[in-house]
């Protein structure tokens, strides 16, 4: 589903070049939950952002469903983000001027295949499955951290993506909410989705099928847990 071949990412800091990622080659398959772990600065977020097409690698090849992403136009990349990829941020990144329903339905405005009724039904189903249906008229600043994260997940899942990328989704949450979120991800992976999660917490090991350890921009170990 996702294939990285010799991915490198360098950043320029003044005159100095910093290698955020060094020679990363890995494959991600559907139906699995992957955990990415490592110390701060090890390149986890950079790797995730490259996979999520938010930044471009300095060199190397990224393939999604067999297609090289380097050859894609801006429009095609946007379509990929719309139809295949979903990105969940640590800081939620909800639109503050829109309520929960409006935030969640936002990706569906670009979907011409659904009627208005179907869109609303899908949004309501998502909110129900995540347990936040009674907060649908609230604004992000009226929600707890866990609720905001669930709204972000609902928004990400709206277009039924095949690949779900979550960058530290539990960083701002307590243990109970973290477990809820990771359980949701596990369910998604069981639905044949490819779920990749960055997580500091060892709790990820209870859910992930594989753990990838990064250190100084390189892959150290891949642990097949389940």
């Amino acid at each position: 589903m996702i294939e990285l071949i010799n991915i490198q990412k360098k950043y320029l800091l003044g005159n100095k070049s910093i290698n955020a990622l060094n020679d990363i080659s890995i494959k991600f398959e559907e139906g699995k939950l992957y955990g990415i772990m490592g110390e701060s600065g090890s390149g986890k977020s950079t790797l995730m952002q490259i996979i999520g097409l938010l930044i471009k690698p300095t060199s190397g090849i990224l393939k999604i469903d067999g297609h090289k992403t380097s050859k894609l136009s801006e429009k095609n990349i946007a379509n990929l983000r719309k139809e295949k990829l979903a990105y969940i941020f640590q800081s939620f990144n909800l639109i503050p001027t829109m309520n929960v329903t409006e935030n969640v339905i936002l990706p569906l405005y670009t979907n011409r295949n659904l009627t208005k009724k179907e869109k609303i039904e899908r949004v309501n189903n998502l909110l129900n499955s995540l347990g936040i249906e009674n907060r649908n008229k609230h604004y992000p600043n009226q929600l707890s951290g866990g609720e905001q994260q669930r709204v972000a997940i609902a928004r990400a899942l709206c277009n039924n993506p095949d690949i779900i990328l979550a960058d530290e989704p539990t960083a701002s949450l307590d243990k109970e909410n973290s477990i809820k979120i990771l359980s949701i991800f596990k369910k998604l992976s069981n639905q044949k989705k490819c779920v990749i999660v960055i997580c500091h917490d060892d709790i990820i090991k209870d859910y992930a099928d594989e753990i990838i350890y990064l250190k100084n921009g390189r892959m150290e170990i891949i642990d097949e847990i389940n």
Partner: peptide
């Protein structure tokens, strides 16, 4: 930028 992450292109 958030719009872009959820699949909106520049024209949208």
């Amino acid at each position: 930028a958030i719009f872009k992450t959820i699949g909106y292109n520049r024209v949208d």
